[in-house]
Amino acid sequence: MGSPERPPGGHDGVLANAVRQIVRSADAPGYVWAACEQSEARSIRNFMRNESGYDRNSFSIAAYWQRDPS
């Protein structure tokens, strides 16, 4: 049995999950910056806006590329 195939350069949720864990476990608010694949950036941005409790001036999330859907 082989290992599961990961999407090429894509969204497997690893980065977004790591950001969630770090932000939730932080002792004090800081600044969150991320530049990544579009779907990961969207997931992180949604978390930061809607769940983190961080002020909008305390994070910057940018999508620098989009995974090829093929």
Rank of each mutant, 00 (worst) to 15 (best):
P4L: 13
R49Y: 08
G13N: 11
F59N: 01
P29Q: 09
F59V: 03
G53W: 07
F59R: 02
Y64G: 11
P69T: 09
S58I: 00
I61C: 04
P69Y: 05
N57T: 13
Q66I: 07
I61G: 02
V32E: 04
D12M: 06
E40D: 11
M1D: 09
G30P: 04
Q66K: 14
E37C: 08
R56P: 05
P29S: 10
D12Q: 06
W33A: 12
M48G: 01
P4D: 12
H11Q: 08
R67P: 00
R67W: 00
G10D: 10
V14F: 12
R6M: 12
V23K: 07
A63R: 00
S58N: 12
S70E: 11
P8G: 10
S58E: 06
Q21L: 14
V19P: 00
G2K: 15
S39L: 09
A63T: 01
A16N: 03
G2A: 15
Q66M: 08
G10A: 09
Y64P: 00
A63D: 02
G2V: 12
S3C: 15
C36A: 12
R42V: 02
Q66Y: 03
S43G: 05
R24Y: 04
D12P: 00
W33G: 11
Y54P: 02
G2M: 15
F59S: 02
P29E: 09
N57Y: 05
P29L: 06
I22D: 03
R20L: 06
I22Q: 07
V23Q: 07
R42H: 07
S43E: 11
H11N: 13
R49L: 14
N17A: 15
C36K: 00
G9N: 14
I44Y: 01
R42F: 03
A18F: 11
W65H: 03
G13M: 10
E51V: 07
A26G: 07
V32Y: 03
D12Y: 05
G9L: 11
D55E: 12
R6V: 07
A28G: 04
Q21S: 15
S43H: 04
